[in-house]
């Protein structure tokens, strides 16, 4: 199939590994899936300290389950990415460890306090839900298929995040202030979650033309703002004055791009921000420490001094 045919035929779940897809399509789909899978892993890495620190037994269980879900999502998405024949999972995981793999901007900022956790678990996951729901209509069937299960579980995660937010915001004054501080710090990053406005986005055109992506950054940001600004206010959070957000006559929002720190955003995107280095290196070290296990699984050596053999 040539690119023009793909564009002509593009519709939800149209293409499967049985189709002979052009390399341009396969590369674009790999790029999206790898980014998405990496983000699941790095999101899990960001939240893992709160399994230990969660302030109730049931919250601990929920954080453990959520972290596990994210790893499961990563596993599914890497599989869908591998089915494109461009990169193996090992290559993608190696790239993530060595700093070449890219992932969502919000997962480059370590969290210090429990009061920050709803910034990820409610706002960022809520934003991710917006995007992921549209990807159920992706033209790459394995991607769309993975989104069915992932969206279901993400729905639970957003509820978990909302429940933590509600609890903190109906807690002591100190708790409320901690959350408001966290919100002011995270809000610009959350707005940048959807990337630059459409006219400045480099990858959108091709991915949209071949049906990999069905909504633009602007549409998704709008849909998120419509719902989540109200939610934030409902729980008693004050939306910061900057970045300025103007409501247009048609009910959509215009975020003043100049109020956002795009230098930081692009530093983050290149994995060069301090937080990026901290998160990537921390995870890479943990992975390096168990390299001996992976080597053993790939290539067990014989043990003449022991009677045991590989189980089978």
């Amino acid at each position: 199939m040539i690119v023009e045919e793909v564009k002509a035929q593009a519709e939800p779940r149209r293409f499967t590994p049985k189709d002979d897809m052009p390399v341009e399509y396969r590369k674009a789909a790999t790029r999206m899936l790898e980014f998405h899978a990496n983000s699941e892993i790095m999101g899990a890495y960001l939240e893992r300290p709160f399994i230990r620190r969660a302030p109730s037994l049931e919250r601990k269980m929920a954080f453990s389950a959520k972290t596990q879900d994210e790893i499961g999502h990563g596993q599914m998405l890497y599989r869908a990415a591998e089915s494109l024949g461009i990169k193996t999972r090992e290559e993608m995981l190696d790239d993530l460890a060595n700093g070449d793999g890219k992932f969502l901007n919000c997962f480059h900022y370590p969290m210090e306090s429990y009061a920050e956790t709803p910034m990820i678990a409610f706002f960022v996951d809520g934003a991710a839900m917006r995007r992921q729901a549209t990807l159920k209509k992706s033209s790459w069937e394995p991607y769309a298929h993975a989104m069915d299960k992932i969206c279901f579980e993400e729905g639970m995660h957003v509820k978990h995040g909302e429940s933590i937010l509600r609890e903190l915001m109906s807690g002591s004054k100190r708790e409320q202030e901690m959350v408001q501080d966290a919100f002011e710090e995270w809000w610009p990053r959350i707005l940048q979650f959807f990337g630059p406005t459409d006219d400045q986005s480099t990858h959108h055109d091709f991915a949209a033309e071949v049906g990999l992506k069905v909504s633009s950054n602007d549409e998704l940001r709008n849909s998120f703002l419509n719902r989540y600004m109200e939610k934030a206010k409902h729980y008693g959070l004050e939306i910061p004055d900057e970045p300025r957000i103007r409501e247009r006559d048609d009910g959509t929002y215009d975020v003043v791009e100049d109020d956002l720190d795009w230098d930081e955003f692009f530093t983050v995107s290149q994995n060069e921000y301090d937080g990026s280095i901290e998160q990537i290196t921390g995870r890479a070290q943990a992975q390096e420490a168990v390299q001996w296990v992976r080597s053993m699984m790939d290539n067990p050596t014989s043990t003449p001094n022991r009677s045991a053999q590989a189980a089978d």
């Binding site: 892993i41 899990a44 890495y45 893992r48 399994i51 230990r52 037994l57 601990k60 269980m61 453990s64 389950a65 972290t67 596990q68 790893i71 499961g72 990563g74 596993q75 890497y78 995870r283 943990a286 992975q287 420490a289 168990v290 390299q291 296990v293 992976r294 699984m297």
Partner: peptide, 26 residues
Amino acid sequence: YTFWQVRSPTLESDLAISNNAQDELG
């Protein structure tokens, strides 16, 4: 056990040890 979440050798072993952690928490 939860120490191993997002630190296990493979994604599969990560999922398995997370299951055990949650069973024990339960």
